[in-house]
Design a protein around this nucleic acid. Structure first.
Lengths: 132, 132
DNA sequence: CTGCATGCAAAAACTTTGCACCGCC
DNA sequence: GGCGGTGCAAAGTTTTTGCATGCAG
């Protein structure tokens, strides 16, 4: 069982209160404003724990540092290759992705020889954003 | 126009000759065996150039360093969260992903307000592999 | 009190870059 | 010959970790 901590709680609240897919450093600065001794190591440790538990989402784009999302409802993302910013693709999953079917088909396919379990599907589109 | 170099040529040959999604370091060691002065900086520079030009694929999983793929035909990947290894999902794209339709629908959707151009779609599944 | 979480700083992991030299065009 | 690519090493960026201390259970 996981032990409660004010730091983890504050991190979760902060992340859930914003919709800009912050980096660890973004969160660090925000949290420092509230809890002046909040350390960067703790940000990273809590982000790693929370995302491993599936309580938050880690967003990996390959353009800049990792970003995090408090919204764990499956949804697609778009990354701007110029500025690295990540945008939500609302409604995209519902329209285009049938996770259950994908997993079922994979289990029947040749790829099944390598795969033991599947627990996450990420979809990332790339291009340039309107601000760039 | 891009100038020819033995190093870039060898990198491309090496990458196209293997199907294990090597990291920059993997390629560095392989290339060193053939060209003893091949430097890691050059590996990174050529990987960056080639992937920016779309001649090779950069595979970002978020579990370990970037990996690269000489096969640029669109295809899905699977990452093992334990060992970081990446596997191809053959036939997955054809069966599940209609890139053109995705882009068209996105242009009509609310997400279009942020997006200027789209030029890549990546899909990554996660879980554990048979070897772990 | 006991042990997991934190703060802080050092270190690790990965990637980029400055500069002198080399080799393609 | 000129300019872009390379080799090497140093530096940059991002993330992880060791250890003493603090706080939840």
């Amino acid at each position: 069982m996981k032990k409660y901590s004010r730091q983890r709680e504050a991190l979760l609240t902060e992340l859930r209160g914003r919709y800009d897919h912050p980096t660890a450093e973004d969160l660090y600065f925000s949290l420092r404003a509230i809890m002046p001794n909040y350390s960067l190591g703790t940000v990273y440790r809590n982000l790693a724990d929370l995302s491993a538990e599936g309580i938050i989402l880690k967003i990996t784009s390959g353009y800049g540092p990792e970003r995090y999302d408090g919204n764990i409802k499956p949804h697609g993302h778009f990354t701007c290759k110029k500025c690295g910013k990540v945008y939500d693709l609302a409604g995209f999953y519902e329209k285009h992705i049938d996770g259950q079917k994908m997993v079922e088909e994979l289990q029947k396919s040749e790829a099944a020889k390598d795969i033991s379990t599947i627990n996450e599907i990420r979809i990332m589109l790339y291009g340039t954003c309107k601000n760039c």
